[in-house]
Every structure is written in structure tokens, then in C-alpha cells.
Design a protein around this nucleic acid. Structure first.
Ligand SMILES: [Mn+2]
Ligand SMILES: [Mn+2]
Ligand SMILES: [Zn+2]
Ligand SMILES: [Zn+2]
Lengths: 155, 155
DNA sequence: CGCGTAAACAACAACGGTTGCGAACAAGCA
DNA sequence: TGCTTGTTCGCAACCGTTGTTGTTTACGCG
């Protein structure tokens, strides 16, 4: 993630104005190596600026994504993860807590033309699902008792 | 996808009852090689059985997923895609229309222990995003005029 | 073959994440 | 300072999915 100053320059270059809200979001993003959700960015920024709205956070994250300063990832954790690292890389996802870890690998996976079916595609996105260390430490039942049946229980 | 009869046996083996709704869903799934959403399964089944509810479709798709007869995929297209092919494989996704195409590849991508950060993970899921043949035929604007600006326009 | 009971169904409400909207507001610039 | 235009914020709407509940149905047993 670029510095708040660099982002400010980039925003101005697009004819966008600089505001305290945007600065606060830039700062929060700059000091995280995480894959925060809009909600968690909102939580971070709200500490400094309690009056900011979640709507503004979404707006700014989307602007940054459009400008390519941020990557929006859908890793199946229920909400969009915003990735401050724009370089090509892959992800490990904890299916229990949603933690995301970066994996920098230079894999070349070619799509066999015979199977490509005429698609024109970009770089592969590789995701491994599993358990993070803290979740695999805990025995299998973090929150539920042990239903041992369908998650959708009928009457 | 196994045949409706096999699925019926599998359901009964779990103590689940057989109903016309479930049979209709089994039939619809058996004759698709697609990656349908719950809505599109609902559309298919509704042709034969107009009284079926979307809720029942979700319920049955979830049951099949729990039993491992179906795989639920989140490919970032906005809704869950249900994959009748349970064998290990990967996907090409059209970012324009959401079409999904299977890719059978035997890639071995090892996670370097140094970068694994203690995660225990399973098989990698590889996704290529791009354009399907019919979407890349059309010039860039399938439905919108040409906004060429942020999707979130302010007043 | 008919009952009783547990399971499944349809309809509708609620939910979580995200975006549309419009009025009030504040950057930037002369 | 005043003006113009982009920005913020609160709220409603939206979409995919799941919870709830009263009614209907499947199916084991007599
Ligand atoms: Mn990342
Ligand atoms: Mn598939
Ligand atoms: Zn975890
Ligand atoms: Zn397409």
C-alpha cells in the first residue's frame, strides 16, 4: 500500500478532493498488512474519527479499488476482503475464523488450449482453505455444542 | 452427478424422505453439466413443478452439499454456484456473464513451509477470470452505455 | 389398507453485506 | 469571501440466503 501522501497525490490527479475521512482511511490501510473488511476498516478509523460513516468507508475503498491501489477479494468468507498488497500473490484462508494469509509463489499454471473453450483469461488465483494455527489448536468445537446433524434443522 | 435413483437411495440411507420436489431437483441436476445457482435450479424445476418454493431448492441443494454429492462454490459471481462434478478440478470464470467452465488439471502446488505460517490446508483451488467466447465477441459494452467512470456516482 | 408421527413443504419474515439516493456540507479555487 | 463541484452521511432499498411456522406429506406399523 502506498503512503497517505502518495495516495493523496493520486486522488488529486483524478480531480478528487482530499478530506479528513479519506486521510484517516489511508492511514489505517497504510499500517495494516491484513485483508480487512469494510467493517474492520470502519472500526479502525472510527477510533480516531468516531463520526465517520460506514458508507464513506465503502465509498473510499471502492475508489481505491477502481484506481488499482487496492484489490477487492472474494474469498468466500462472507464479505469482501480488501488487499493492500496489489502485487500478484495467492492466499491461505482459515475456514474457521476467516483469517487470510499471503502466499508469494511464482507458479506458472498454463491453461491447456484444448480445455480453454475459447476463454481469454488472466493470471490464476490460487486459494488454499484450511485452518490457521490458533483455530487448529482449539479442539473441533469452537462455538457449537455438537449438533451432529444438518445445519438446517426442521421442526 | 449421480442419477436420481442413486441419490434417492443415498437420501433414504440417511433417513431422509423422498418427495416429488427432491426428485425434480435430482432430475434437473442430473441433466446439467453447468454450475447453476439456486435460482437457476429453481427456474429449471419450476417448469415441471410450478408450486415448488425457492426455499425447498436451497434446502435440497444444501443437503446434497452436506452429503458430498454437490460442491458449493463461491466464485465471486454474486451467488453460490453448485457444482455437480465433485472430482477435483478448477475453474474459468467469465467476469462479464458469470459463465463457469471446468478445467481438469493435475497441478501440484506445494505451500512452502516457510510461508505457510502454521496453516494446515487442503488442495489448492485455482480460478482464472477472463472472458468467455461469446462475451469477448461483443465489443466491450454488453449492457451499459459507456460510463467510463466510477460505478458509484455522486450528485 | 388406514393411522400416527416425524419430516418436509410453502409462504413469509428477517438477516448481513452492500449500494442508491438526496440533502447538507466542505474542498478547492478565483 | 463566495461559488462551484465533489463529498459525506443517514436511511432506505436490494440481493442472496436462512429462520420460522402452520400445514401437508411420506412412510413404518398395526
Ligand atoms: Mn493478499
Ligand atoms: Mn466445476
Ligand atoms: Zn482461524
Ligand atoms: Zn461471458
Amino acid at each position: 500500500m502506498r503512503s497517505p501522501d502518495e495516495l493523496t497525490t493520486a486522488f488529486r490527479a483524478q480531480g478528487l478532493k482530499m478530506t479528513p475521512q479519506r486521510q484517516a482511511i489511508f492511514r489505517a490501510l497504510h499500517q495494516t498488512t491484513d485483508h480487512p473488511t469494510a467493517e474492520s476498516v470502519y472500526a479502525m478509523v472510527s477510533a480516531d474519527m468516531p463520526s465517520i460513516s460506514l458508507r464513506t468507508v465503502y465509498q473510499t475503498l471502492n475508489d481505491l479499488t477502481t484506481m488499482g491501489e487496492l484489490v477487492a477479494l472474494d474469498l468466500g468468507t462472507g464479505s469482501t476482503r480488501f488487499d493492500p498488497t496489489a502485487d500478484d500473490h495467492h492466499h491461505l484462508v482459515c475456514v474457521a475464523c476467516g483469517a487470510v494469509h499471503d502466499l508469494f509463489l511464482d507458479v506458472q499454471v498454463a491453461v491447456p488450449a484444448a480445455q480453454a473453450a475459447g476463454f481469454s483469461v488472466g493470471r490464476p488465483e490460487i486459494t488454499w482453505r484450511g485452518m490457521c494455527p490458533s483455530c487448529s489448536d482449539r479442539p473441533p468445537a469452537p462455538q457449537t455444542e455438537q449438533p451432529a446433524q444438518r445445519e438446517e434443522t426442521n421442526a
